[in-house]
Design a protein around this nucleic acid. Structure first.
Lengths: 159, 159
DNA sequence: TCGATCGTTCAGTATTGACTGAATGTTCCG
DNA sequence: CGGAACATTCAGTCAATACTGAACGATCGA
């Protein structure tokens, strides 16, 4: 791994960690986004990142569960091979509605908790809930437009 | 604070904490979203949340800097008064492009780090960069549409 | 100028949680 | 069946950090 590649991997670790994932998850995903060949074994990854096999095992579960990587097997080879899913970010953002829905759920429970208050007092939470409901619907729609645009670019003559 | 209100405050603490802020920041914002009266002093908040004044002081800096709360003074009163900014979430999401831009920056530095690779090898990062650039533009546009829709609802006859 | 009140700072503490590494379990080849 | 290579698990360690609380500084009224 060159210094520039190592810096990329480390940056990915910091960014993912700042959004609730573990640094190792960010590093591992980052590595799988740039490694050559694109399919690697757990031992390959552990050596590249200087991490223990236990950490790779646990992190692989997280990343696979979140849809960021794919784990495959080859016949006659007991090792597992990992690679970055090509459409990981698309499907993550397509489901981004869930994140906003979670916060909207809290707002709605807050409105129930304050149901005896005056309308003015509850405006703060009501506005929050309305905005979140809107974003929750529209963000997936953005991703679908992106995918449609790209599909049109790649087949402009209707082939 | 009723049990239901306390649960809301605690949930806000957990959600904000899971996205990189401190639990106290979530609790304090949550409290300012439901408290009565809506303006509170640091002592009020510390007592409601069972927190130290030092924690309130530091958290107030964070929340004010992020645009979630407003700190005001009244003449003849040396205490500071805090309240939740009504448009906090709107302005936060309007600037959400910055978050995607940050990740796009990492992807672009990764592409520089792998500039000697084959085009197929770099496809993973290029797709990531393109999608992020798209989302970076479109998410603020969503918020603007929400604000425009709401303005139209509130003045449907062009008053 | 003194005293009271409020905000800030910061060293110390306690907690969380990410990572390690050895032990365990499992699958495949000879 | 035995052994090797691999994945998983989990108790222990270490570092990061959120929070406390006392000390400090600033501001205002008397």
């Amino acid at each position: 791994m060159t210094p520039a590649e190592s810096e990329f991997v480390e940056e990915m670790g910091q960014i993912l960690a700042s959004y609730g994932m573990t640094p190792m998850a960010g590093r591992m995903w980052g590595w799988l986004l740039i490694c050559e060949p694109p399919e690697q074994t757990a031992a390959d990854i552990a050596e590249a990142l200087g991490a223990s096999r236990g950490a790779i095992s646990g992190t692989a579960r997280i990343l696979a569960g979140a849809g960021f990587i794919r784990r495959t097997m080859r016949r006659g080879d007991r090792r597992e091979w990992f690679n970055a899913k090509p459409d990981a970010l698309e499907s993550f953002l397509l489901n981004a509605g869930r994140i906003y829905a979670q916060l909207r759920g809290v707002a709605e429970r807050g409105l129930i908790a304050t149901s005896d208050r005056s309308p003015e007092s509850r405006e703060r939470l009501e506005e929050m809930r309305d905005l979140l409901a809107f974003v929750e619907r529209e963000v997936p729609a953005i991703i679908e437009r992106f995918l449609a645009d790209r599909a049109a670019e790649r087949a402009p003559l209707g082939s």
